[in-house]
């Protein structure tokens, strides 16, 4: 199973809350919701040749914090197959007027956003796994 695991790749942006949301959501999926089907990899390491060889051709779901889409761009650059991609700011809109937190710490609203993102990705993972089973 491990060689078929889907990578969950957050941008982990450090400046504002949107990167932290992406990071926490990715950890929730990989550690809690879909540990058997998913894995995580350090985004920064994708630039290293030894890591590129390891991940090329592998499926990935990207969670980006801003429209610069660092996670998605880095995945493509590394030869990964982007199955789904999300922007955390889109999930924050549902809680317009509420404070999701900062780049250091999430509020209760921020934790709800993380849950929303993680559940969305969990559904994606299950769909991908199901499709693979049908092939």
């Amino acid at each position: 199973m491990s060689d078929k695991k889907i990578y969950i790749l957050p941008c982990s942006g450090i400046g504002k809350v949107y990167g932290l949301l992406s990071r926490e959501a990715a950890h929730k999926v990989v550690l809690d919701l879909e540990p058997q089907h998913t894995d995580i990899i350090c985004l920064a390491s994708l630039l290293l040749d030894e890591v590129k060889e390891q991940v090329a051709g592998r499926s990935v779901i990207c969670i980006d914090g801003c429209p610069k889409c660092c996670a998605e761009k880095s995945s493509v650059e590394a030869g990964m197959v982007v199955e789904k991609k999300y922007l955390t700011s889109h999930f924050v809109r549902k809680y317009r007027g509420e404070d999701p937190g900062t780049g250091s710490e999430l509020t209760e609203t921020g934790k709800k956003v993380v849950d929303d993102i993680a559940k969305t990705i969990q559904a994606d993972v299950q769909e991908i796994i199901q499709e693979r089973g049908e092939k």
Binding site: C11, S12, G13, I14, G15, G19, L43, A44, L46, L47, K68, C69, C70, A71, K73, S74, E77
Partner: peptide
């Protein structure tokens, strides 16, 4: 001051 490391790749 800091910068997101991934921004170097996509930046």
């Amino acid at each position: 001051v800091t910068v997101c490391l991934p921004l170097f790749i996509a930046g």
